[in-house]
């Protein structure tokens, strides 16, 4: 199984532990990542560039899709925000032939053209739809029994559900829960799991962003969670790095470790925590790891 790999900005920037753990996990799962084909791909615009100029954003994404198309490989991302922005751009490009034609004009000078055949996929969905829960279960060498995990989807991998093709792929709406169960841990359900983490306004209205972190992490903790799992590096950044600020608003330490999806899989299929930089989080994962008998 080979994919054109689109790591996104954050896994190569502020969340290097996501990048490292993805590489290690994909190797074990038999997912071959081709770096070369998307090496000159740009940022999706992250929804932010789109506030300023939607068409420019769509053009950059069409260019990235054209690069993937050229490689002949399906496109894989490890960032929910990239997934959402790409899916939305793709939906607009495919819905209007004239629009796609106009945008392709912009790509012409580079000899690129987007024909409309790309279906970008997050690792979370690849695990569900291409690897399959049964295969994942068969690779588990360390059942994470006793660990109580709160799923945190965030926004971009669940909304808008039409662009993300939830109807065609109903398992997408419960994928994180299924994976948590497949590795032997138990699911802590809480209402915030599909809400915004607050990251998009962190630099605009920090107070609101931090209050969102406080609400989600403390609710999950009150419901009994030992840690939270997310497929989105931006959610991770806010929920982990700003949790100390969130704790201040609650006047008590929240201390809920936030782990990336591949780190969860990695723990279960026998990858060492240091290799996945589980010791590099702001909120320590020590207690959580000792609960499953792993020393960090």
């Amino acid at each position: 199984m080979k994919f054109a790999f689109y790591p996104g900005c954050v896994s190569r920037g502020a969340c290097p532990e996501l990048f490292e753990s993805t590489i290690a996990v994909c190797e074990k799962l038999g997912i071959e990542l081709d770096y070369k084909s998307m090496e000159s791909a740009s940022c999706t615009g992250s929804g932010i560039l789109q506030e300023k100029n939607l068409k420019l954003g769509d053009t950059l994404n069409a260019r990235n899709f054209a690069l993937a198309e050229k490689s002949g490989l399906p496109l894989l991302t490890i960032c929910s925000t990239c997934q959402g922005v790409m899916s939305q751009a793709n939906a607009r490009l495919l819905a209007d032939k004239e629009y796609l034609k106009e945008i392709n004009q912009e790509l012409k000078s580079e000899g690129l053209e987007y024909k409309g055949t790309v279906d970008p996929k997050h690792l979370l969905w690849v695990l569900m739809e291409d690897i399959g829960i049964d295969k994942l279960k068969s690779l588990v060498v360390r059942e994470l029994k006793g660990l109580k995990l709160a799923p945190f989807y965030g926004c971009y991998i669940v909304r808008p559900s039409a662009a993300l093709k939830f109807q065609e792929n109903p398992s997408r709406s419960t994928s994180l829960e299924e994976i948590i169960k497949a590795v032997g841990a138990s699911v802590v359900d809480f209402p915030g799991k599909t809400q915004c983490c607050g990251f998009p306004i962190l630099m605009i209205n920090q107070k609101n962003a931090v209050n969102m972190v406080a609400n989600h992490t403390s609710t999950a903790k009150d419901e009994g969670a030992d840690a939270m799992v997310t497929p989105c590096p931006l959610c991770h950044l806010n929920l982990d790095a700003y949790q100390p600020e969130a704790s201040k608003t609650k006047n008590e330490p929240i201390n809920l470790p936030i782990i990336h999806l591949p780190q969860l899989i990695g723990l279960a299929i026998g990858i060492e925590p240091e290799k996945m930089k589980l010791n590099k989080h702001i909120i320590s994962t020590k207690t959580m790891l000792s609960e499953i008998g792993v020393s960090p």
């Binding site: 900005c9 920037g13 300023k52």
Partner: peptide
């Protein structure tokens, strides 16, 4: 001159310059 507009402009600038967001 709002934080939001500066945020959007900064993203625009860094993708234009390097292809990625400069965190």
């Amino acid at each position: 001159n709002s934080f939001g507009a500066r945020h959007a402009n900064s993203v625009n600038k860094s993708i234009k310059h390097s292809g990625r967001i400069d965190e």
